[in-house]
């Protein structure tokens, strides 16, 4: 397989337009890698949720999309990072329907369900980095 299918791209996230661009890009990369439409949609929705959280809670940050088509199995990984306020109680934040704003409280818990792997590192006052991965089946 060609190395064009392995990507490493960073999108700065500041506005909802950036959120839209990042999820669109994730969808495109996933489909090009051979993920089916359902999985590509899962990846795009997870990107959308994480990027929107950056805009809402941290004002700005970035989404890094990496994929390795030569890995066994191939995967796509999304890293959402910001230097925002961080999350005090991660377990609470990960609970379905818990929100500190007026959201549905589904972004984090839902992204975990949509992806194969979910990892969160956060420190109050320093920021949040969330890494999600999906493997090609």
């Amino acid at each position: 397989m060609s190395s064009e299918l392995s990507v490493d791209e960073i999108t700065a996230i500041e506005t909802v337009n950036d959120v839209s661009a990042a999820r669109r890009r994730g969808m495109t990369i996933a489909l090009e890698m051979g993920f089916d439409r359902a999985d590509a949609t899962r990846i795009a929705v997870a990107i959308s949720e994480l990027a929107r959280n950056i805009v809402v809670y941290a004002n700005q940050g970035m989404i890094r999309i990496t994929s390795d088509h030569n890995a066994e199995p191939p995967y796509i990984q999304v890293i959402a990072s910001d230097n925002g306020p961080g999350i005090d109680d991660v377990d609470l934040a990960m609970t379905d329907h818990w929100t500190s704003s007026r959201g549905l409280g589904l972004g984090l818990s839902g992204s975990r369900r949509l992806m194969d792997d979910f990892n969160i590192e956060t420190e109050v006052g320093r920021g949040t980095t969330i890494t999600v991965t999906k493997w090609l089946k």
Binding site: R37, A38, T41, R42, V45, S109, G110, R113, L114
Partner: peptide
């Protein structure tokens, strides 16, 4: 609603 959209909405918990 497309099938893939319904699937992800359900998994998201909507």
């Amino acid at each position: 609603l497309q099938d893939a959209v319904i699937e992800t909405m359900v998994e998201l918990g909507m």
